[in-house]
Design a protein around this nucleic acid. Structure first.
Lengths: 238, 238
DNA sequence: AAGTGGTCTAGACCACGCC
DNA sequence: GCGTGGTCTAGACCACTTT
């Protein structure tokens, strides 16, 4: 393990403080010069840490003003995934998530859509089945598979932070989502899916296979998503 | 118009040279120190230009080696096709594009899916209707609308560079795609679409509405995409 | 060993926002 | 006018890759 660079230390500290509410959404971080004094370094180093926070989607920089906190949860901006609460249309929609069953250890589905490493295969996974609502209309059925590791085992016993898997992984386990690969298709609703969404059989559904890449090498999270898009489109999935 | 910063000048020069083939895919850019000498500046400034090229997706930086050219065109928002037989999506498919009719001036469809400015509304648009094939199977019907401006009028008379609209805009008119907003749905194939794709009516299609944001303020490009995903899934290139 | 990019210092001046 | 972030200089040492 290579030594943590100074700017990474600063980035990590500020990220945690943002996530813990020290700097709420809409507030300003300390100025670059203040941060230089705090962390005993120069602007160049502080700026590198702040640029990382921009890339993460936590802050925006305002010339002549300061670093504005725009979000207290990770969203990686352009080359990024967006959590469901950001995905559906305008943020004015009320979003709710239910668990179809509690997160439970399971075998990997066979065959699985993504190739699995021997370690993943052997360790098994935690299966998380959730149904997302927009304005109390069921719109997304999400099957998530998290490989079982030391860090992830506690997902089985402790409730998710704010009901969010990724927020829990980030805050409690320092595992951040860095990127995703996804594959998109349109499919016809199977009977059980039609029942869940309250639509006719064979209604077109948006089907998305996702592999999330994380800050932990060789640790991936997998999701299969079925979206009922007759009333709500899915936006900004990049 | 504010003066072009030095690092922007360097970024622009290198980008053009990459696009023009001076540095082909797989080659290395001059080292930071060489670029410092060439552009009469310091590493800090050169590095900022190189970081922009990384963000654009043109190069990757290799510690101890150099700046590797990974692409001669910006990949933002492009879609790739992934056959069901592909294990990891590494398999590349032969992709071909045909024009259903030549690019022609047109009125905006009414109603249009995105709100238009008064300028856009009045200027009208160039309508481009293309059909994309993967391995000679028709997989994507793309309706693109480009507002008519001084810069874009020549799209009507000159053929596209490499058949690519975005490459033409970038190389010939210095208009780069910076970002996109998109909205996704699954819809049932209409009869004329079923004919084009050679599928049954009501086959589920992936429908994508896109607004591309460009380096030109208030200049957007719009696309409506219909994708037949029974044989080929759509992957986002991030 | 030599060359590359990665990190970092200690300054400087400029452009923007606010009072 | 003052503080902010944006740009830039001229160095330094470190870590990685190749020879």
């Amino acid at each position: 393990m290579t030594r943590l660079r100074h700017y990474q230390q600063i980035h990590h500290t500020l990220k945690q403080e943002i996530q813990q509410g020290v700097y709420p959404t809409g507030s300003l971080l300390p100025s670059e010069n203040e941060l230089c004094a705090t962390f005993q370094t120069t602007r160049m180093t502080v700026r590198q840490a702040l640029n990382e926070l921009v890339r993460d989607g936590f802050i925006e920089r305002r010339h002549g003003k300061g670093s504005l906190v725009t979000s207290t949860r990770p969203s990686l901006g352009l080359l990024s995934f967006r959590g469901f609460s950001d995905v559906v249309g305008n943020t004015s929609h009320q979003v709710r998530t239910t668990f179809l069953n509690p997160p439970a250890p399971a075998d990997w589905p066979a065959p699985f859509v993504y190739p699995l490493s021997a370690d993943e295969q052997q360790a098994g996974c935690i299966a998380i089945n959730r149904l997302r609502y927009a304005d109390d209309v069921p719109v997304m059925l999400e099957h998530t598979f998290v490989p079982i590791q030391n860090a992830t085992a506690s997902l089985l016993t402790e409730p998710f932070l704010d009901g969010s898997l990724f927020r829990t992984l980030s805050v409690r386990h320092q595992i951040d989502i860095r990127n995703l690969e996804q594959s998109l298709r349109a499919v016809a609703a199977r009977p059980e899916q039609a029942t869940i969404f309250g639509c006719r059989r064979n209604t077109p559904l948006l089907y998305i296979e996702r592999r999330y890449l994380t800050s932990l090498p060789d640790f991936y999270v997998y999701s299969l998503l079925y979206c009922h898009t007759e009333q709500y489109a899915i936006s900004n999935i990049l």
